[in-house]
């Protein structure tokens, strides 16, 4: 997702990471109880996990996150008027890049004076499931996060 942000920045595509609640709280990164802690965790996202996109933080009660469906790692794409034109209940770089390329083509076609009308489409996209990498991430949060995930999903 960082690479996509860099690849399309000059084409007029902005990218942010919006910090929410902790999906898998552990001993090292526990659940959030203050805005100061939320800002610290968000900073770790940049400094430890290397998120190079601009990071913005939601309110402690997750007002924005909750309004958009409160999934743990979803992606939305907005146009400049604030209209959501893509939403996915999970973040996948291939899916996002596919959408970005399509929407950039729409801009080009409009510049070429093609008359177009929007329509809705549903599509099931596919992502790679990397269990080893996922568990490495859980371990970073603390052993509690690993145990709870195993208990929930086996």
């Amino acid at each position: 997702m960082n690479a996509i942000a860099e690849r399309y920045a000059d084409a007029g595509v902005g990218s942010i990471f919006l910090y929410t609640n902790e999906a898998h709280p552990g001993e090292i990164y526990p659940h959030l109880t203050s805005m100061e802690q939320k800002l610290r965790h968000a900073t770790a996202l940049r400094d430890v996990l290397g998120v190079s996109r601009r990071i913005l933080v939601d309110s402690l009660d997750g007002a924005c996150h909750r309004a958009y469906g409160s999934m743990p790692n979803m992606t939305w794409i907005f146009n400049q008027a604030g209209t959501p034109i893509y939403k996915s209940d999970w973040s996948d770089s291939h899916s996002v890049e596919n959408a970005v390329q399509y929407f950039l083509q729409v801009l080009d076609r409009r510049r070429n004076r093609e008359r177009m009308a929007p329509f809705r489409v549903e599509r099931l996209d596919y992502r790679i499931q990397d269990q080893a990498q996922f568990y490495t991430g859980l371990e970073r949060n603390g052993p509690k996060a690993v145990t709870e995930f195993r208990d929930a999903f086996g």
Partner: peptide, 30 residues
């Protein structure tokens, strides 16, 4: 409203209005 890492307030609309398109990934460290 949203906040930058230094605690400065901004908004989702300020973000989406800055570019032709804006990709917003929601998530956390954990």
């Amino acid at each position: 409203p949203l906040w930058t890492l230094d605690g400065t307030e901004t908004s989702l609309s300020a973000i989406w209005s800055a570019n032709s398109y804006t990709v917003v990934e929601f998530g956390s460290f954990t």
